[in-house]
Amino acid sequence: MDGGRLGVSGAGSVLQTLGARLGLAALLSGLTAVLLVVLSGHDPVAAVQALAAGAFGTRSLIGAGLDRSTPYLLAGVGVALCFRAGIINIGAEGQIAVGGLGATAAALGAPVGSPVAAITLALIAGALAGAAWSGLAALLHLVRGVHEVLATLLLNFVALLLVQLLLAGPLGQAGAGFLQSPRFPPSARLPRLPLLDVHLGFPLAVLAAAGGTVLLWRTRLGFGLRVLGASRSAARYAGFRPPVLTMLVMLLAGALAGLAGAIEILGLHRRLVEGFSNGFGFRAVTVALLGLLEPVLVVPAALFVGFMEAGALSMQREVGVPTAMVTVLEGLTVLYVLAATSRRGLR
């Protein structure tokens, strides 16, 4: 996973080969997309037109695409940091869900008049809840040796059911017919930016990505994470404590995912709804890998996935290509990128 593990020959030639391989992966993805549209019996040109119109057609559509990219970006940055340290955290989905839960509890439970205070409180509550969830997975891994993939995966299911459980109980809106919470008070809604028609979460996410890159490349902690990802014994030799690093990066990733969950419901749904985080966990992994585990590069990756999905809805409506096609494409693209960046791929 670690970028450092990729290099075999000289640094320059590695970059060139990597670039070529990624180009090939992108080309393959494009071809796959066309193939999928054709196989489902539709005109690829019309499909692309509908997709583009759905993604970028109007200012508010662009805003919607940015909104959609935000949680992927935040959680993806956390996943990228974990992967760099060699920790396969695929629990973003659960961490996002629990983050939404935390934000809801704060927004509904602690009525604060001032919007700044209310929103800050709710965002912090979401981040803390997400960190607690990932911290739990890290604890199971560190103390009892449960593989982190299984710990995070199984906790995803528990988290989703926990949201439903609480929506059916104390957090739910009685008699709504759906599993959802009451609407948040106006003070706890994330403001939208006037210029781009996007909620405040998006600039926050971009800041987080920039922060992630600084952390990774300019701090001793980031150096430790990269060494740990390359070799655990080298990390110990260098004086780092792998369990501490593991816990720290998991807490950080959980906080980012929790923040994503909080932003998603405070900025978009304005109430907690069942299944709001469905599929977000894998998208976080997707954008992290598409961004080559480089936090700032996760920004374009998240935008790409976000706008693709936004456009896919109109593609299904206008042309009839199922939205699930985008899911297939995401999965295959990650596989292409994995194959392109794997050790053998760079020989």
């Binding site: 996973m1 396969i88 695929i90 993939v149 894998f282 992994v285 997707t286 890998l289 899911t327 297939v328 995401e330 999965g331 295959l332 990650v334 596989l335 994995l338 194959a339 960046t341 794997s342 050790r343 053998r344 791929g345």
Partner: peptide, 14 residues
């Protein structure tokens, strides 16, 4: 291609 088993499996699921 010797890619990470975990992420590969996850992507195949998707």
């Amino acid at each position: 291609s010797r890619a990470d088993n975990m992420v590969t499996g996850l992507s195949a699921n998707i």
